[in-house]
Computed example of a mutant assay.
Amino acid sequence: MTGEITTISVRAEPLITGYRGLICDLDGVVYRGANAVPHAVETLNRVTADGISVVFATNNASRPPEDVESHLRTLGVAPHGWSVVNSSQAAAAYLAKRLGRRARVCAVGGPGVAQALTEAGLTPIRVADLDDTPVEAVVQGLGIDVTWSELAAVGYLVGAGVSWVATNVDLTLPTQYGEAPGNGALVALVQTAVNAAPHVVGKPQPALFDLSRFRLGTDQPDTLVCGDRLETDIEGANSAGLDSLLVLSGACRLRDLAFAERASRPTYVATDLSGLLAPGLPVPTSSRELLVELTDAVPRVPHRGDNGKLLQAVVTAAWAARDDGRAVSDDVGIWEKIERRLGLVQLDQAR
Results as ranks from 00 to 15, higher is better:
4 E>T: 12
5 I>N: 14
8 I>R: 06
10 V>Y: 14
11 R>P: 05
19 Y>D: 00
24 C>L: 13
27 D>P: 06
29 V>G: 01
32 R>N: 02
33 G>I: 01
39 H>A: 08
41 V>S: 03
44 L>R: 00
44 L>E: 00
44 L>S: 01
45 N>Q: 05
45 N>L: 07
52 I>P: 03
56 F>L: 09
65 P>K: 06
66 E>Y: 10
70 S>M: 10
74 T>D: 14
76 G>W: 12
77 V>K: 00
78 A>P: 04
80 H>W: 13
82 W>Y: 11
84 V>E: 02
84 V>A: 01
87 S>T: 06
89 Q>N: 02
90 A>R: 00
90 A>N: 04
100 G>A: 12
100 G>I: 05
106 C>L: 07
109 G>T: 00
112 G>I: 04
112 G>Y: 08
114 A>N: 01
129 D>C: 06
138 V>K: 01
148 W>S: 06
149 S>Q: 15
150 E>D: 07
151 L>K: 02
167 T>K: 04
167 T>M: 06
172 T>C: 13
182 G>N: 06
183 N>S: 15
186 L>N: 00
186 L>D: 00
187 V>N: 02
195 N>C: 08
198 P>N: 01
200 V>Y: 04
209 F>H: 08
211 L>Y: 06
217 G>E: 11
217 G>F: 07
218 T>F: 12
218 T>M: 09
220 Q>V: 08
221 P>M: 06
222 D>R: 09
226 C>V: 15
228 D>P: 05
229 R>K: 12
235 E>W: 11
236 G>T: 01
238 N>R: 12
239 S>Y: 08
242 L>H: 04
245 L>P: 02
250 G>C: 08
253 R>D: 15
254 L>W: 06
275 G>H: 05
276 L>S: 00
276 L>W: 09
281 L>R: 12
285 T>S: 14
287 S>V: 09
289 E>I: 09
295 T>W: 12
303 H>P: 11
304 R>H: 15
308 G>L: 14
308 G>V: 07
309 K>D: 14
311 L>G: 03
313 A>K: 00
313 A>T: 03
314 V>M: 06
323 D>R: 14
325 G>M: 06
